[in-house]
Nucleic acid binder design. Structure first.
Lengths: 245, 245
DNA sequence: ATTGGCACAATGGTCCAACCAATTTACAAT
DNA sequence: ATTGTAAATTGGTTGGACCATTGTGCCAAT
């Protein structure tokens, strides 16, 4: 960005970082896409003239950032696009499995999801709308088949909307909040009809988005989250979730 | 001193993860705080009955997450609190367009900061308000002394507000957005009076918060972000930030 | 011709022992 | 007390070996 500034960090030794830079270049040159397989550790070690240990440390870094996935016996696969000047902000959210923590994630969702949906209503084109509709119908199908909300299909629908917002940060942050939420609430926790109240809002939200009605989309998303909060409060009352600080 | 370390061998597969779990327990038991030094790799290797390579791979993960800092010849130091149930959120900001990336962070801020400020207005007690006021006055002081916004004091003020929201997620996520924003925009980029327009809103926001007026606080925070966006658009126009894909 | 199972190669995961490089500590010389 | 230097400490790197898992292809049985 600031190409006029020609200062570089003093580089005494930074082997693994150099390995990653070389790997970025390689991926760019070969036009590798997410899902493609990277060269084996032994090949990289040989070609880059560094020990396999160093290659592994570098790849461990990328794996920690979710950029790469290692499968023993198979290989190392690219999971996301990489570039030299991409910005990884590792954000560690320490959170216990307390009622308060779950409510905290809802605070974030209450702030982000309505805005993301509103942006989607503004920006989604026919192609994105078709994709969202497909996810919606798949979710409704699963709901009727299993007589209840299916977390996977539900998330697929929302993810489709947030991806259509055009801002990748929404997807990443909201996904983390969902993950945190469902990690401690894998089961309906005594709430038999968990998610039932939210069902009807999905199609309404889709319609608002399809109508390019950002305010309506925002309002309906807010209602949906309110149903989630109500479910959570019922669950907390049932099980008397206690703090484990 | 290290003779009393209570570490036990581990046996499961997924060695490096087991190492990290053991380390979490160790940190908790010893009451280690950020800044404290961890046992050396050789000690860990010996006590956990695991090769030093495996210990290093585990620590590399934590280093990538910013949880730990290694200093050659000195040791490995804790940089943040760790707990078993923490969620790592790797935020990846694609660097297709710098301007677009900055606008993406603003989308998130526009969603989160008004809500966090509103929550602060609801929840802040006298003690928190006094702390916020102190940060406000320090910022205003720095502004008059240096004839311009000071990023550090500015952030201290906002951070005080978001901490008073009572939800630690707000602080962490918003801090990450600020970090991204300023990493791309370390200098005012041709906008000489960068931040001047935002100055007056700080005191207004404080007053709304002190009055426990969440809607007012939300509205004023939105205006403040609007001034940031205006600054950004002027900067982009000045320098003709271009895509570097 | 199809299918099932098995041997073998490829690949990531772990271990060891040694040495390098930076830092800290101890200690002697002044 | 200060300073300079040697030694010990600690993270960083290397090479080589072996283990565990996965993928591939051959071969026999059907």
């Amino acid at each position: 960005m600031l190409s006029s500034i020609a200062l570089f960090p003093i580089q005494t030794t930074a082997r693994d970082e150099a390995v990653l830079n070389a790997l970025v270049d390689f991926v760019a040159r070969e036009g590798l896409m997410p899902g493609d397989r990277l060269p084996t550790e032994r090949i990289l070690s040989e070609r880059l003239r560094v020990s396999r240990t160093t290659v592994r440390e570098a790849l461990t870094r990328w794996e920690g950032l979710g950029l790469v996935e290692r499968r023993q016996g198979s290989g190392t696969y690219l999971k996301a696009a990489v570039s030299r000047d991409m910005l990884h902000l590792p954000l560690t959210l320490a959170s216990g499995s307390t009622f308060r923590s779950l409510m905290d994630t809802l605070d974030i969702r209450r702030a982000l999801e309505p805005e993301a949906t509103a942006l989607c209503a503004l920006r989604a084109g026919p192609k994105e709308l078709a994709f969202i509709l497909e996810k919606l119908e798949r979710m409704e199908e699963a709901f009727h088949a299993r007589k209840g909300m299916s977390a996977d299909e539900d998330w697929d629908f929302h993810q489709a909307i947030y991806e259509a917002s055009g801002n990748p940060l929404f997807v990443q942050i909201i996904a983390a909040m969902h993950g945190m939420f469902h990690r401690f609430w894998e089961h309906p926790l005594g709430v038999a009809d968990f998610g039932h109240a939210s069902f009807r809002f999905h199609r309404i939200i889709y319609e608002r988005v399809a109508d390019h009605d950002p305010d309506g989309a925002r309002a309906e998303t807010l209602k949906l989250i309110a149903t989630v909060e109500a479910d959570l409060r019922r669950g907390a009352a049932n099980l008397k979730l206690t703090d484990r600080t």
